[in-house]
Computed example of a mutant assay.
Amino acid sequence: MADFLDVETEAQFDEKLEAVAQQEPTIVRLHNSAIPEVKSLLYHAYRHEPTFKYLFEASRPGYEQRVRATLREGLKLHFEHQQDAIGLLDHDVLAAVALIGAPEHRFNLADQLSWRMRMMMTAGISSTKRYLDYHSQIRRCFPDDLYHHLPFIGVHPKYQSRGYGRLLMQTIEGFCAESPRSSGIGLDTGNARYLRFYESLGYERIGEVRFDNITETVLFKRVL
């Protein structure tokens, strides 16, 4: 094919390839039209997590379906309440995502009747009860004042070890710092690797919740 290209065209083509290879990741605000892509990314990011394996009973058949159902219903609820979501694009492919709960929207999942009914029908009664208990115990660890909360954050396994998680967290902190009502950012993890990562960013442990043999650590960072 190169035989049919003149020298100038080949040079331009090579420059274009080099520019694409060096393209910086892009941060974007996501809307509900991105739900399918976000759900797929979060599924790959969370399905092997210890907390999810406990909550949705990985030892029983149908685990993957329960995880997908939980993510679908969680995303639907998040966007229905007009909460923010930030994505990181690598060459126009969604590589990382974070859902951000606003300080004034710390709703109790137990009060979300339609969400609870859909969860019981798709994820099952047992997993829904476990998830509600998890959510309730985690909420009790956070401070009483207003703060942002990250219910879901993940980097697709294909794009890990590129610094995207750190870049995404820096963007989140800048976004949350713009809100005068927020005292900081809260999140939780049951993965020791991610615990070390968050602590390296200045997040401090404010509580722990035990589920079977899983320790879920709750963290908080003041954002000025």
Rank of each mutant, 00 (worst) to 15 (best):
K129I: 12
L109N: 14
P36H: 00
V218W: 00
S161F: 09
M169T: 01
S33V: 03
R68K: 15
A95N: 01
F142T: 05
L30N: 05
S40F: 11
Q82A: 11
H105F: 08
L167K: 08
P143I: 03
A177I: 03
E204Y: 05
R60L: 15
L224F: 06
K16G: 08
S182C: 11
R47E: 05
H48S: 15
V67K: 02
E24M: 13
L77H: 12
L109T: 07
A110N: 15
L113K: 12
R210K: 14
A58N: 08
I214V: 15
F211Y: 11
Y54Q: 12
L113V: 10
Q23A: 13
V38P: 00
D6L: 02
Y147H: 14
D144F: 00
G101F: 00
F211S: 04
C176L: 06
D92L: 04
R118I: 05
P25S: 05
G62A: 03
A69Q: 01
H81E: 03
K39I: 06
L167V: 00
S183A: 12
A45S: 13
F142E: 01
L195K: 11
F152S: 11
F107Q: 11
A2T: 00
Q160G: 02
L17R: 12
V223Q: 09
L224P: 11
E15T: 14
T26I: 03
Y159P: 02
F197V: 01
T217W: 13
C141H: 06
I125E: 14
F13H: 09
S114M: 07
L132V: 11
D212L: 02
E15L: 15
Q83H: 05
L89V: 02
I100N: 00
I206L: 10
D212R: 09
A45L: 06
S59V: 04
H149A: 01
V7A: 10
S200G: 07
L132G: 08
Q112F: 01
D212M: 01
T122D: 14
R181G: 00
